[in-house]
Simulated assay, not measured.
Amino acid sequence: MTRQNRSVTLDELYRDLHSHPELSFEEIRTAAIAAAELRAAGFDVLEGIGTTGVVGVLRNGNGPTVLLRADMDALPVLEETGLPYASTTSGVMHACGHDVHVACLIGASRELAATRADWSGTVVAVFQPAEEVGRGAQAMLDDGLYERVPMPDVVLGQHVGPAPAGMVGAHPGAAFASADSIDITVRGRGGHGSRPETTIDAIVIASAIVGRLQTIVSREIAPQETAVLTVGRMNAGTKNNIIPDSAELGLTIRSYHEKVRGHILAAIERMVRAESAASGAPDPAIVPAESFPVTVNDSVATERTMAAFRSAFGEEAVLDPGQVSGSEDVGLLATAANAPLVYWILGGAHPETYFTAANAGTIERDIPSNHSAHFAPEMQPTLIRGVAALVIATREWLRS
């Protein structure tokens, strides 16, 4: 299924997308489906923005411009869901639910195009590549996104997560954490394992660094602040009796305030260099990798949008998820346009299973989270609610 048309149901579309995941900046097939769907709905379509990004513009008289964003990329995860429509691409999976995002935006684009008598303004549907590596939004901006499409008055979007399917909600203010990945190479002097006195042991230095880094959050960040520092990768050596020349560490850092983020990054550099110097080692290499800014929901715009959701779905279906420790690059699209952002959580977990786990206190064990090999959102009512949320939010911001 390389092209779609409006006779394809949303369920069929979603199953196809889930079965054919593509990694960051490789979303060629997904982008082609999005472009074909937008054209079928009557949008003006631009392709290849920021490598594989697709944008559809639907002008419908005077009024505001609303940008709707869905990310398209998958993850290097071997799927273990057992679904009949599981990934057919070995070692690649839609483990973060971006297939849900794409399907919902296509569904919303269809509905908005079919109901143009009910609203006035411009809809900009953005299918963004490479969110998982934090570079897709910026790539589209660098490729002249806002020189090619109307500047939005508001940026809207959603992320499926392990909340009960049918529920939606956004947290005003800092909603998703900033994220920084750092690659560190500790340099030493290798040699024979039987003669450590002739070496500078990079493994020992790296081990000391790992221990010291744990004190940053516990001893340098105020208790009322939130931060996470994780060493997720440590690589060194080739043989038991060889002391290697170097050791590698991979770090991820999460926070909600730029001051906290800056303090953590400076402390990492201070500690890594100090531990190396204390051992008489050469200067280490500290290289920034992926970076995501804090995702900040505009408080006024968020309340306006959530009020529309409460009116449409009922009070009990709209939640405040609190601050999410995951990260996003959607905020860059809003910042570049100087427009408010409203980015909400879309529940995707089976409601009965979720509430049973909640009552038992076993959500973390029984409800797979994003990036898990077992992450499998309930197809319905997740897709129906996701489409409805995008349409309702869009109409709230457009003239009727």
Rank of each mutant, 00 (worst) to 15 (best):
G61D: 02
K239M: 07
G326C: 09
V330Q: 07
K239T: 15
A336P: 02
E47M: 06
H98K: 01
E27M: 01
Y14W: 15
M379L: 14
L38M: 12
S87T: 12
E316F: 13
Y146N: 08
Q380K: 11
G190Q: 10
A289P: 09
E147H: 13
G136A: 10
R365T: 14
A301F: 07
A208W: 11
Q214N: 12
R304Y: 01
V217F: 00
G190M: 11
V102K: 00
A86F: 11
D180T: 11
N241D: 15
P223C: 06
A74H: 04
Q224K: 07
P21A: 14
H374D: 11
V126D: 06
L229C: 09
R39C: 07
N62A: 15
E47W: 06
I200C: 05
A247C: 09
A373P: 09
G82M: 04
A267C: 01
S299H: 14
S299M: 01
L46K: 06
L67V: 04
G188K: 12
E269A: 06
P76N: 03
K239L: 08
F43A: 03
R395C: 13
F176L: 15
E131S: 04
E79Y: 12
I209E: 03
R395E: 15
L46A: 14
G161Y: 12
V66R: 05
V155N: 09
Q158N: 02
L105M: 02
L265H: 03
V155D: 14
P76R: 11
H371E: 10
E248K: 06
S400I: 10
P172K: 00
L112Y: 08
L58C: 03
L145M: 08
T226F: 08
G348V: 02
A274N: 04
S120W: 01
T122G: 02
I33R: 04
D201E: 08
A337M: 00
A175Q: 04
I49D: 06
T199A: 08
S178Q: 01
A35H: 03
L341R: 03
I243E: 07
I243M: 00
V123M: 11
R270E: 12
N297E: 14
V55A: 11
A139E: 10
F355Q: 01
A175S: 15
R273L: 10
L67E: 07
